[in-house]
Amino acid sequence: MDPVSHYLILSALMFTIGAIGFVVRRNAIVAFMCIELMLNAVNVSFVALSRHVGGLDGEIAVFFVMVVAAAEAAIGLAIVISLFRTLRSVETSDAAGLRL
């Protein structure tokens, strides 16, 4: 099997684990970490394919994914903090109302 296939399978595995964790876990912070896991899985396949094709475009895409992940971390954790302030809980099942 081609070496790039190994990286793609690893990436698929990581993405699946992250997706399961996002659905299963009830803690909002852990769900957030599972999103980071999925973003990283995509990054691995971007770099592997960029290496395979021989260009730089994939690595630039990873750079922008990291930018979006950093912005998402700031916003997401601020949302978790304000959720905790209103509900006194970070469980996603407690945040069931449309209005806080």
């Binding site: 957030f32 980071e36 990283n40 770099v47 990291m66 992940a69 950093a70 971390a73 954790l77």
Partner: peptide, 20 residues
């Protein structure tokens, strides 16, 4: 991808995880 390896450690394992 040496640049991305360094950015990964500094931004993800450093900044974002410290925030988490």
């Amino acid at each position: 991808a040496h640049f991305l390896a360094m950015v990964q450690i500094i931004v993800y394992a450093g900044a974002i995880m410290v925030l988490v």
